[in-house]
Simulated scan of single mutants.
Amino acid sequence: MPSRPRFNRILLKLSGEALMGDGQFGIDPETVGRIAGEIKVARDDGHELCLVVGGGNIFRGLAGAAKGFDRASADYMGMLATVMNALALQNALEKIGVDTRVQSAIPMATVSEPYIRRRAVRHMEKGRVVIFAAGTGNPFFTTDTAAALRAAEMGCDALFKGTSVDGVYDADPKKVATAKRYETVTFNQVLADDLKVMDASAIALCRDNNIPIVVFNIREQGNLARVLGGGGTFTVVEN
């Protein structure tokens, strides 16, 4: 793979599941602590970082709607779950000396700042990590779309999606032994082949704003720093 320009400002998208470790649900403090350590290494290397975290380890709106919840209410419940995850990450980061701010798209003045774009940019310029909670603040939008939106608003060089696989494959590698991993793939191919990187609105938002998506395995120790440095295994989705 040719050498890539350094990504200085990145948005890291974490699924809620990334925080539950080997458990079936909830937040595993040891796993959260490890991820916080990886974020600290990236910050200490001079990267400006912001994060969007999902809520699937606590409550997933779509799953709730499928079981009879009103879809809008279920999505709001999922957004509140992301606030819990954001506070857990903030706690873990501040324990290891990383200044962190949580900004929530649903105003919650007691526990977080409201989402204010210029304030978030200023925090990052000062070396703080900003965690965006509560998705976009609107039902019917996923946290993937929130990540793409915030990456565009923050002027990020790339969106890093930390998952449980080491890139984008032409089939599910957990089910198909012969699945092939892409080194790079275009946004349009992801949409045309329905490659399940992120939902279609998130992919289109990144494509239209020319923000590459770097898909890598966050469960692998030290992988965020490796991939930021151009090493490790990952897939880049770009125009």
Rank of each mutant, 00 (worst) to 15 (best):
D99Y: 08
G64M: 10
T82N: 08
K95Y: 00
E38F: 01
A88Y: 03
M79E: 07
A105K: 08
A133E: 09
A36R: 07
A86K: 04
A86D: 03
A105P: 01
Q24I: 03
F59S: 00
L49S: 11
G127A: 10
D75W: 02
E48I: 00
S73W: 09
V129W: 02
L87E: 07
A134I: 09
E94F: 02
V53S: 09
R118N: 14
D75M: 05
I131F: 06
V130C: 04
N138T: 02
I131G: 00
M79R: 05
A133C: 03
V129E: 05
F141C: 12
N85H: 06
V121N: 03
K67A: 14
G46C: 12
P107G: 02
D45T: 05
N85S: 06
G127N: 08
R119W: 04
M84S: 07
F141K: 11
E30N: 13
T110E: 15
R71V: 01
C50H: 11
V32S: 06
G33N: 15
C50D: 10
G46W: 11
L62K: 14
S112C: 15
A42M: 07
R34T: 06
D28K: 11
E125L: 13
M108C: 14
A120Y: 11
H47V: 09
L89E: 00
L93C: 05
P29R: 10
N85L: 04
V129G: 05
G26M: 02
M77E: 02
E94V: 01
G55R: 12
G46A: 12
A92H: 02
P107A: 13
A74F: 01
M77Y: 02
A134C: 15
R34V: 01
Y76G: 07
E94P: 04
G64T: 02
A105F: 07
Q90T: 01
N91R: 12
N85G: 03
E94A: 01
P107M: 11
M77T: 15
T100S: 01
P114M: 10
G61T: 07
I131V: 10
P107H: 14
V41N: 05
C50G: 14
G127Q: 10
A36K: 06
A66T: 08
Q90C: 03
L62G: 13
D45L: 10
E113F: 13
V83Q: 14
Q103I: 06
K67V: 04
G55H: 09
R118L: 13
A36Q: 03
Q103R: 13
G23S: 13
A92M: 00
G64R: 11
A74G: 09
R118I: 05
L89M: 15
F25V: 11
G26W: 03
R43K: 14
R71M: 06
A72C: 08
F141L: 15
I35F: 08
N57C: 04
V52M: 08
T31V: 13
G64S: 11
V98N: 00
L89K: 01
V52Y: 11
A134M: 14
E113W: 12
A134H: 06
R122D: 12
G55P: 05
H123K: 08
D99F: 09
